[in-house]
C-alpha cells in the first residue's frame, strides 16, 4: 500500500465511521424532538385514562360492548381474529391458586413514547400533539409491524371484513388494517366522553375516567394525585398514559 492508497483508505474509514454514527443520531434526534410529550408540556392538552379496578365488576361487559358498537370493532366469534379495542380479562395473583379472580381492562396505553409509531414504515400510525395514537387507514399498507412492536398486544388486525356496521358515523372496519383504542378521539374532539366511560357511568360503576393530564383540576389528575396508581410495564420506558388504581 503506497501513501496515496493509505490516505484513500483512511478517508473512506473516517467518512464511513462518521456516517455510521451520524445516521442513527439524526434518526434518534427525531425521536426526542417535538414529541407529544414535549409539546403538551408546553401547555396543550394531554389525554390520559384512569381505570379504578376497585369499582370494576367481573360480570359486567358494559364498556367493551359500548366500545364495539361505537368503533365498529369486528367480532367474528373466533379469538384469533376478533378485534378488541378494550378487553376484560380475569387475573389472579401469581402463585396463589385459590385467590379470587379480579377483573382487569386491557387497551391501548396511548404511550408517550409509542413503539408502534416508531415502527410504522409509512407513518400511518402517528401521535397527535395531545398524545393520542391513531392509525390512518388510508395510508396503512397492512404490514403488521406495529403489532410486532407493541409490547402490550394492544393492536388488533382486521383479518376479515367486518360484516356489521353498527355506527354509521364512524368508518366501517375494512380488512387489512390494524385497529386500537383511539380514546374515542372523535367524541373527545366534540367535547363528549368516550363510549366506554359513558357506558361505565350508565351502569353506575364509574370505574373509568378520561381527561387532560396537564390540567391539575381534571378528574384524572386528581385521581392520580390522591391514589396509588400503576401503569403496565413501566420498565419498558414507553410511558403509558393509562393508569390503574387497585392493581
Amino acid at each position: 500500500m503506497d501513501r496515496r492508497e493509505f490516505f484513500e483508505a483512511a478517508g473512506i474509514l473516517l467518512g464511513g465511521t462518521a456516517c455510521a454514527y451520524g445516521l442513527p443520531l439524526v434518526a434518534v434526534s427525531q425521536l426526542t424532538a417535538g414529541t407529544a410529550e414535549e409539546e403538551s408540556a408546553a401547555g396543550g392538552r394531554r389525554w390520559g385514562m384512569v381505570i379504578d379496578l376497585r369499582s370494576c365488576r367481573l360480570d359486567c361487559q358494559a364498556c367493551t360492548e359500548a366500545c364495539r358498537r361505537e368503533n365498529n370493532a369486528a367480532l367474528h366469534g373466533d379469538p384469533r381474529w376478533d378485534v378488541h379495542l378494550i378487553r376484560k380479562v380475569q387475573v389472579r395473583r401469581k402463585g396463589a391458586a385459590d385467590a379470587a379472580l379480579k377483573p382487569l381492562l386491557l387497551l391501548c396505553n396511548q404511550c408517550d413514547r409509542p413503539p408502534c409509531v416508531q415502527a410504522c414504515p409509512v407513518q400511518a400510525t402517528f401521535q397527535r400533539p395531545d398524545g393520542i395514537v391513531l392509525v390512518d387507514q388510508h395510508r396503512c399498507i397492512g404490514c403488521r409491524y406495529c403489532m410486532i412492536a407493541c409490547p402490550y398486544n394492544a393492536r388488533h388486525y382486521n383479518y376479515k371484513e367486518n360484516p356489521e356496521w353498527p355506527n354509521k358515523d364512524q368508518p366501517r372496519s375494512v380488512h387489512g388494517v390494524p385497529q386500537s383504542c383511539t380514546l374515542c378521539v372523535h367524541r373527545l374532539d366534540q367535547g363528549r366522553k368516550p363510549a366506554c366511560v359513558e357506558a361505565c357511568e350508565r351502569v353506575g360503576a364509574k370505574a373509568l375516567a378520561v381527561g387532560d393530564l396537564n390540567d391539575p383540576q381534571s378528574e384524572v389528575s386528581r385521581l392520580i394525585a390522591t391514589h396509588p396508581v400503576r401503569v403496565i410495564r413501566e420498565d419498558l420506558g414507553t410511558k403509558p398514559k393509562v393508569y390503574y388504581i387497585g392493581l
Partner: peptide, 11 residues
C-alpha cells in the same frame, strides 16, 4: 405484570 397472571380472556 410481574405479580398477576391472566386466567380468562375473550382473546
Amino acid at each position: 405484570f410481574r405479580d398477576w397472571e391472566i386466567r380468562d380472556s375473550p382473546w
